[in-house]
Design a binder for these strands. Structure first.
Lengths: 217, 217, 217, 217
DNA sequence: TATGAATGAGCATTCATTCAT
DNA sequence: AATGAATGAATGCTCATTCAT
């Protein structure tokens, strides 16, 4: 019952920024490969339809070997989910931090773009998270509720600040608005192939324009 | 190979509204119960995570009995998916047919409302469809692509007419707009419990307002 | 536990000769249809691979209806087996009874012919019996051992008489000979389509010639 | 779809004689155990009446483990069938190759003996093949038709050579003769327990004598 | 006289998981 | 650091059987 867990770099708080090539051991690489394969397959097929054998095949290891790195399929999901949300969240925060002194509308525009980038990026972590979270059993959702709520609150603040600054009409209720905006963004995963250069940026600008200005003449 | 499939109600065009108690045979009731249970579970957990035993339990029959009515789990999904899309589609078309001579914006507002109603209705067929379709393997998606495309084109026409009538800015590209709007609507399934009276109508109005007028002051 | 068994004409001792058209009720016809369908399918696919649904389909009734006529699948087999052996046995006995005063070799020749006729006849009862008996579980074989042994003993007498009359070499052991002869005959089911006119007669004559005269120059 | 099937011994041409204990890995042993158990049960009960659980029990492994070695029940059958026919075929060919310069009748006598040996040997592969092949559905028979035909042609040549050398009467048709002979041999499986020493040889000699010299005085 | 509806035990198969090496 | 071999619980599905009508 006391399970292994040797090759972790510290649970879920691994500084994944340094994973690229530096000292990433072979072991580290296998771990990453498993996670990336899992994310890709979860995204495409959902959690339950994805087998460990598929993940192993894609990661080019043996199914049994997965258990050297992870305690269970659930544990892989956990990390994929976590990574996925952290990527959008960090992406959005970073973008806004880098921006100088800009209007609230411009801030929201940047957040939209960063959210879309995370979603349509090469990696599948964020899109996997967005796509499968809703259908997961309570047991698997539970641990991630906190971060998700934090992200939602982050957007709420973004919108609230804009409203206080009179850049959003005062009769707009913010929570439904946030759901509306994030829904529209998230759903693009189901339709769009935004791998082409600048496609994400273009979509982001269009979305921002509709949300602020509306579509009417 | 050529057995079973006796108890069908005659294709997919059954008026399922009158199923309650009227003259629906006992057989028909079981069939409906299976479909409704399946829809509910598919919606909640996805297709692959839902077992026939769960469906049977919810329908209060024995797992083996399902095969008296359906050839396979896939066949159940097929019918749930079909029913689900037909319900939104019919709902939207009916709403617009009933409306008299109204503006394009009003038409779109009605379509939004009807779409949301189908999604948050008592029945889970539409929401199941919307939620799980994207993760299904090709084999299961295939047969439904046509109807889905037809529905998309229906919205495109709605928007196109509005644009021609100068009720939508001419610089707006319509296909991204349609994806944007339907995405925002579909995503509400993930967040909202709109079972409260008028909640759907209120959300519909809010959504329409944002889309047309935008959120800015 | 006290099972039905209404439409039997007296267990296994039914005078099946009068079944043709005379007073055979509709019920009787269904019974026969079930048995004939079962015999055909058992012969082709074996007992265990044949489903009641297949039998019902071929007999053009509903699967459930079989239980109006028979207590179980086993009971059908029982009757098919019985009928099958009785048909060869009666066929051979009848042929020999009709024959006048002939040599032992001629008698055996007639027995060979009658055995082959029963085997390749329109009806599948005998061939089903021959083909599937060996693979049946003890429980199903048991009740038929007696008749089978009786038939074997009948042939043994036939051969023994011939040997006593010096028409078979005295150094030939009769039981292996019987097995050899019946084996050769029975195996034809696996290879030959003897539905063509006179094919059976021709094969019978050839077989008799080999057995008595041998193949050598 | 493209997983498993690792532990093969390299196609079907493995010299299975050396499997006993020599260097056969543990894995190899399990594979053999499955095949041998399957052959024994198929022979006794037929294909469809044999369950994987029975095979697993006899092989002293868990039912699920079978799938580590075989893709399906059908795949096991395939290999059993193949092995079974190869054993007789090789047995007969080997016997004849070892024989020096002998008469055609003596050659046929040896072939009869080798065929009977394969059939009544410790292993059940050949007898399983002979017994169940006829009742198999097309799908399972198909792949083995070629080898079976090759074996039949081999016998045809044996007989044809004998006839050309005037050791078989010229009025004998060879194909029916082959069927007759092989039928007589094959059928012994249904009756005889030839495990006793020399029983097979004795039967072989008797059979050859009847076929060539006939039974008449 | 028959059947439509339903059952439940059992089947082949899958898959997350284990563990000796 | 990783795997080959094996497990066993659970899955979708089949089928002989039941029984009210």
């Amino acid at each position: 019952m006391t399970r292994r867990r040797r090759p972790t770099t510290g649970g879920n708080t691994v500084p994944r920024e340094m994973t690229d090539a530096t000292n990433a051991s072979k072991s580290q690489k296998s771990r990453e490969a498993i996670l990336e394969s899992a994310a890709k397959l979860f995204r495409r097929q959902g959690y339950s339809a994805t087998t460990l054998r598929q993940i192993a095949d894609l990661a080019e290891i043996q199914a049994g070997s997965i258990y050297y790195y992870f305690d269970s399929k659930d544990a892989i999901l956990d990390e994929v989910l976590d990574e996925g949300l952290r990527r959008v969240f960090n992406g959005v925060k970073l973008k806004l931090k880098q921006a100088g002194d800009i209007s609230h509308r411009q801030k929201i525009a940047l957040a939209i773009e960063a959210h879309l980038v995370a979603l349509h990026d090469a990696s599948d972590f964020t899109s996997a998270n967005i796509r499968i979270y809703g259908q997961l059993p309570e047991r698997l959702k539970g641990p991630h509720r906190a971060i998700r709520r934090a992200y939602a609150r982050y957007w709420d603040r973004l919108l609230s600040n804009a409203q206080k600054a009179d850049e959003i009409r005062s009769d707009i209720e913010l929570i439904p608005l946030r759901i509306f905006v994030l829904g529209a963004l998230n759903w693009t995963v189901e339709w769009f192939d935004l791998s082409k250069k600048d496609a994400v940026q273009k979509l982001a600008r269009r979305t921002e324009s509709i949300i602020f200005d509306g579509v009417k003449r």
